[in-house]
Design a protein around this nucleic acid. Structure first.
Lengths: 270, 270
DNA sequence: GCTGGACTCTCCCCCCGTGGGAGAGGCCAT
DNA sequence: ATGGCCTCTCCCACGGGGGGAGAGTCCAGC
């Protein structure tokens, strides 16, 4: 005869905690959140009593927590109308998080190999130049990479493959706020009109602090940090958006070999 | 003539914050931690003043924080004796974290595809059996996978490739504490002695709740959760360590197809 | 020199999920 | 009835900040 507890036996919080491998503290917290209310609460003593059939929910919570799912999302999964959708959202969030951490790790590897970012900075004069531009806005600094690559694809579709002497340039505000306006430009040979869907713009010239980044685009911020630090140390302030000049084609060049020029326009008092 | 601020000009916390793209709150916090003390603090007013040459450290902090490096680790990197070593530690930590999240994501994908874990559970009688065992201890529940696979390699080296009818079994305590003793067993045909380096043990028989897990080993916990929930719902308590019987050879079977039997010994009052 | 607005100071509370601990009261077997 | 667990509520801690109150400071314009 197998020993068993009747399902109707009320379990004290300690017994239930041992069964489902959660701490008493956790169970109380989940009860307070309405995530896993006890089957019965003694109105006199406040003692929480659970039933065995609540074990499945309790263990599901433990499982999802071990996957770093936030309690609010777990609540949606367990008691929402559409658990699959809620789980899908959680999956997407976790997926983004994973990708971000992968990039972080790669950046850290680079720092480990080359030390904290430093950049050889040169002062650089740039002439004003006409360009066909498209504009977009990233909703957060994390979104810049995605928006930039999407925008650059759009620009290349509208303007066609870059001919000889055409340079592809990204312009980013020096102050990254919540919304980041991004301008992507393809320089235009003299007199050529801007293709439909793009806007003609004149990129101002002047003196720039310039550094060269070699490596994946999502690590540009490392060199940009170093270049900004260089400017700040010398008391220069950015007089306009920071420019990235994409020298290589990411379709034909390995990410580790991609060369990008970073240009910060400097204020002049001439 | 380029406009520039003299490096000796003291910068107020707000100016410095704008320069290095950190919040005033953050700078104050880093100052309190001794991570980035201001160049000078006015003893009368408590105002913090920074110098431009501190921008590099400040931006390095911002960079490392964007990689989720804890402030204590950043302190080691910036002011420790061995920045490379500190960075290496951070890298390793991030690497582990990444691997863990990758596994979490895979588990979540499985849950999304099959719903929250459920298992077909059968009651199962098992005869006592002799086995050659090796033992090990995992320092944390997260370490179980690593220790188990290492221990199983050791067992197979000592006991040789499993012959006909030999079963490979892992035994894990039902209560996962901080230290998890793990026993790995290869069943022995009648009368065969335990190979050197292994111990002879008698695995007790009895009645078990049994579920079959199909999929990667690091997702066994999903089925185990379901099996444990089944037991708890019916009021059964584990009468000993939980067994995993590894049916397939991970060297020749794809992870998604690996079959593992999970057995929980049940208390009997005969 | 004075005033107003922008800046900065300290201090406290908030987020998340959880653990630790105090002090009071309840449950149950002897 | 008593002792030894158990459980209750309430507060504080972590890390890495954000938000805001109330008071004091700095500096440009007049």
């Amino acid at each position: 005869m197998l020993r068993r507890v009747n399902d109707d036996d009320p379990l004290s919080i300690g017994q239930f905690a041992r069964l489902v491998r959660l701490s008493v503290k956790q169970l109380r917290h989940y009860a307070d959140l309405g995530l896993l209310p006890p089957a019965w609460v003694d109105p006199d003593t406040g003692y929480r009593y659970y039933r065995a059939h609540q074990a499945r929910d309790a263990m599901s919570i433990g499982l999802l927590r071990s996957l770093d799912v936030p309690l609010t999302a777990i609540k949606d999964v367990l008691s929402g109308q559409d658990p699959a959708r809620a789980l899908g959202d959680v999956r997407d969030r976790l997926d983004d998080e994973l990708a971000r951490r992968r990039r972080s790790l790669a950046a850290l590897e680079r720092i480990l190999a080359r030390g904290l970012p430093t950049a050889e900075v040169t002062l650089w004069r740039e002439e004003p130049q006409r360009a066909a531009v498209v504009r977009d806005v990233a909703d957060s600094p994390q979104d810049i990479g995605r928006v930039t690559s999407a925008g650059m694809r759009r620009l290349l579709e509208l303007a066609g493959p870059p001919g000889e002497g055409v340079r592809l340039i990204g312009l980013f505000p020096a102050d990254l706020g919540e919304y980041v306006p991004i301008t992507l430009a393809a320089t235009l040979p003299d007199g050529r009109p801007a293709p439909p869907g793009t806007t003609l713009d004149l990129l101002p010239g002047g003196t720039f602090a310039r550094a060269v980044h070699t490596g994946p685009y999502d690590q540009i911020s490392l060199t940009a940090h170093a270049l900004l630090a260089w400017c700040v140390e010398r008391g220069h302030t950015a007089a306009g958006p920071i420019r990235e000049v994409y020298i290589d084609d990411p379709a034909t060049t390995a990410p580790d070999d991609l060369v990008t020029h970073l240009l910060i326009p400097l204020e002049e008092t001439s």
